[in-house]
Design a protein around this nucleic acid. Structure first.
Length: 464
DNA sequence: TCTGGGGTCCTAGGACCC
DNA sequence: TCTGGGGTCCTAGGACCC
């Protein structure tokens, strides 16, 4: 999907169509998740600090991400992909591989057939969501991904078998999956700038530079060799949560309290997934951005809050936090399918893992009611960081409804006021009104479903 | 007031086992 | 009593992706 989060927001908020939109964290330490193409013109990019994005494009609409809505749209798109083949491997909410050889056209997938399928898919996505997608088709994951990126946005590239090398050769090495800043720099120092350079390099040299797996993998990719299968239904291997704080944490008790909160959120998600984990990991990022992790593997898997919390506390207590922490995280890995019903195994796991000297494990186990739901559901502030005065009641992009004026969304708030634009998906751009932040007529609302714009009959044929 | 959050995979060293 | 050669597991860190 093209500029997915930003495009969803534009579809949901008619006044933002064609305007620069930036979705991401808006706090002092926020970064851009997605910038609309209109914002990219100003140099706004993913992962850029929000502060910098505001400097570059002060007129953009800066919105807090609404993952619940994005997930709903994603489900629609993924459903369309599964109509092509059950072999769908999502990479994220907005990207997936599909193996068409698992579908009804298997064995008859020449370039013409694949092109027709891809065109149909794009128009189906547009009809169902109003959003544009870029499709790449090829005989391997490597080439399909590169093809999908070659013509963004709203692109369609089908790579004819046998033409892989001529497409790969001129690309910079950074275009390859798995070549980031560090690998790119290592290769640059060795004079390897393009994929053709990479293909011409001895594999043993690459292994020496980059290690066994990466060296061999990149060499094969440069030659266009990639036989990785499309794997649907991959189980998650870890579950983690983390928070960056608006100001660094220095107080030990405060750090412990935050680890407790993170443990509760992590276990909540662990349980929701019906799984349990053996390894508990704590992550700490210091004031200078240096990052530490500490982990402990238990004797048996657990999904008990008390066990995770005590382990996280213990791990955190062993780290020097002088100077302050900007981030804390808690994660669980080594996941096993948890047998919720298997109470014997369950209790055994908890007892063994906890050990005899870890204090009361059940007392206070659910004693953090303040956390409950703080992050889930449409009514929860998405950027509530403890230590701030109070979670803001209104945040930009949020859906609201007004007793008199009906549904709308928060454009901004400050100095006791909140500004709301009253419009709904599929409707005309709406009017703006300002209220007192505690106006009783104003309430939170769920996101209304996207309404795809009517497509003129002539546009149904793909311009291809 | 530079630098989010949720993941995956790999490497390297040490413990431990046969 | 100068001490091999596997193998697995655990821990910590780092690169990378969206």
């Amino acid at each position: 999907m093209d500029a997915f989060y930003a495009s969803v927001e534009q579809a949901a908020k008619p006044s933002l169509a064609g305007r620069p939109v930036v979705v991401g964290g808006l706090g002092p330490r926020g970064v851009v998740a997605t910038a609309s193409y209109e914002a990219r013109v100003f140099g706004v990019r993913s992962a850029m600090p929000a502060r910098e994005a505001r400097r570059r494009c002060p007129n953009a609409a800066f919105l807090v991400a609404r993952f619940t809505l994005y997930r709903q749209v994603s489900d629609i798109v993924m459903g369309l992909l599964r109509e092509l083949s059950p072999l769908v491997e999502p990479l994220s909410l907005d990207e997936a591989f599909v193996d068409l050889e698992g579908g009804p056209r298997a064995g008859a997938l020449d370039t013409a057939a694949v092109t027709a399928i891809a065109r149909r898919l794009r128009s189906d996505i547009r009809a169902a969501t109003g959003l544009t997608a870029s499709v790449g088709a090829a005989t391997s994951k490597l080439m399909a991904k590169l093809a999908s990126e070659a013509d963004k946005p709203d692109g369609l590239v089908v790579v004819a078998p046998g033409t892989e090398r001529e497409r790969l050769d001129p690309l910079p090495v950074r275009a390859l999956w798995g070549v980031g800043p560090a690998t790119g720099e290592t290769l640059r120092r060795a004079g390897i700038l393009t994929v053709a350079d990479l293909a011409a390099t001895d594999e043993a040299d690459l292994v020496r530079m980059l290690g066994q797996a990466h060296g061999r993998g990149l060499h094969a990719m440069a030659l266009g060799l990639d036989d990785r299968p499309v794997v649907p239904d991959r189980d998650a291997k870890s579950i983690s949560v983390e928070d960056t704080f608006e100001t660094d944490l220095v107080d030990r008790d405060r750090i412990t309290a935050e680890l407790d909160r993170l443990s509760a959120r992590c276990v909540e998600r662990l349980r929701a997934s019906g799984r349990s984990g053996r390894t508990v990991q704590v992550k700490l990022r210091r004031y200078d951005f240096s990052t530490l992790t500490r982990s402990e593997t238990l004797a048996a898997p657990t999904d008990e809050l008390a066990v995770v919390r005590e382990t996280a506390r213990r791990l955190g207590a062993g780290v020097d936090v002088t100077g302050g922490l900007r981030l804390l995280g808690v994660g669980v890995s080594n996941l096993a399918d948890f047998t919720q019903q298997d109470l014997f195994t369950h209790d055994l796991a908890r007892d063994e893992a906890a050990g005899p000297d870890d204090g009361p494990l059940t007392a206070g186990g659910a004693g953090h009611p303040a956390d409950a739901g703080a992050w889930a559901g449409p009514g929860a502030p998405p950027v509530f960081h403890p230590g701030r005065p109070a979670p803001a009641r209104w945040w930009p992009g949020q859906d609201v409804t007004h007793a008199e004026h009906g549904p709308g969304w928060v454009q901004g708030s400050g100095v006791g006021r909140v500004t709301v634009r009253f419009e709904v998906p599929g409707g005309p751009p709406g009017r703006v009104r300002t209220f007192a932040v505690d106006d009783p007529a104003l309430a939170h609302a769920d996101p209304p479903p996207l309404v795809p714009p009517p497509v003129p009959a002539g546009d149904l044929r793909d311009p291809g």
